[in-house]
């Protein structure tokens, strides 16, 4: 009887311990752990005001040229379609390396981003250039697959030459509060990445609130993400300035605590040069100039590059441009 009571109370105790109640505060302490502590709360209206303020920044002349070139060099040129073929991927890879041959001195994009099945094709296509290969994985875009499938998916991409892995988190698990599951999954994928850098896609359009975005950012960072990324591009809204700002602040707090830099990749929905420049302003005014390189900041985009190119040419010639003069991929 006593033994029964003992084991019962042990069970009870372990249940309490397993529950790990959230420590309400301490979001900024050095022992911050998103699985034990609440993340800092985020006021959406305040974020909107901050973003609106950033959008009033006027980028002109030299700073504009410099910024636009920077944007080109930060693009992950992307094709993620069911109908992708080696032919399409090869053409895109060529574009990544030769954004506008008529205009020498322009950088290449940072990377091309493709499905795992296309990694080998792309790797061969960019051979000899600085363009990296990024591959989505983990049953992109829904992430609705068992862990072993996701691990295989990731290893396949890495083995075929992916330099970077863009994984998706399990949003369903996140929304039902299973943060530990989300954390463990990211940690497992990170291990499977080996030397490849891991970008963790939060799919913020499904997380809905900025508080969730912040929490997911903190979990991803603590689980080993090298980059955090907003979206798959398959869900609306994709990247927004508000969401990106929230993620940048998570990166900043992590850096302030640990000295470790994490990269940021807004993806989907950024199609104009002006919008891209505002993102750069935001990075500059939150994380600082140190993040203004493609090692730490990327744009996931397919049509952004041409708008930036058209702006550059317009600035040099003073004439507004036509898309007929810029290759579509």
């Amino acid at each position: 009887m006593a033994a029964f009571l003992l084991s019962f109370s042990y069970l009870f105790l372990s249940l309490i311990l397993l529950k790990k109640p959230m420590n309400k505060l301490k979001p900024f302490s050095s022992d911050f752990d998103p699985l034990r502590h609440e993340s800092p709360s985020v006021d959406k209206v305040g974020v909107e005001e901050r973003v609106a303020r950033i959008q009033t920044r006027s980028i002109k002349n030299e700073s504009k040229i410099q910024g636009l070139k920077l944007v080109l060099n930060m693009i992950d040129l992307t094709t993620l379609e069911g109908k992708d073929t080696p032919g399409k991927v090869k053409q895109m890879c060529y574009k990544a390396m030769h954004l506008l041959d008529a205009h020498p001195g322009l950088p290449a994009t940072a990377a091309v981003c493709v499905y795992p099945s296309m990694v080998g094709i792309a790797k061969a296509a960019v051979k000899g250039s600085d363009v990296k290969i990024a591959s989505v994985s983990t049953a992109f875009p829904s992430g609705q697959a068992p862990l072993n499938v996701k691990l295989d998916d990731t290893r396949f991409a890495v083995e075929n030459g992916a330099d970077e892995i863009d994984m998706v988190i399990s949003r369903g698990k996140f929304l039902s509060g299973e943060y530990q599951f989300v954390f463990d999954e990211i940690a497992a994928i990170k291990e499977a990445c080996g030397k490849a850098r891991l970008k963790v896609i939060l799919e913020t359009g499904e997380l809905v609130t900025l508080d969730n975005v912040r929490k997911a950012s903190d979990i991803a960072i603590h689980a080993g993400a090298d980059f955090i990324k907003t979206s798959t591009g398959k869900i609306q809204p994709a990247a927004t300035m508000q969401v990106t700002y929230t993620m940048l602040m998570a990166i900043k707090d992590h850096y302030d605590r640990t000295g470790v830099m994490i990269g940021m990749k807004p993806a989907g929905g950024i199609s104009t040069a002006k919008a891209a420049l505002h993102y750069l302003v935001m990075v500059k005014e939150t994380l600082g100039d140190a993040w203004l390189s493609n090692e730490w900041f990327r744009f996931g985009a397919s049509s952004l590059a041409n708008d930036v190119l058209m702006q550059i040419i317009k600035m040099e010639t003073g004439v507004y441009q036509s898309s007929d003069y810029f290759s579509i991929d």
């Binding site: 002109k60 410099q66 920077l70 830099m261 994380l287 600082g288 100039d289 140190a290 203004l292 390189s293």
Partner: peptide, 18 residues
């Protein structure tokens, strides 16, 4: 802000925009 050695540009400042 910590200085990073590997950044590609030293700084990106806004040109005057009066």
């Amino acid at each position: 802000m910590a200085k990073k050695t590997d950044k590609k540009i030293s700084s990106w400042d806004f040109s005057p925009s009066p």
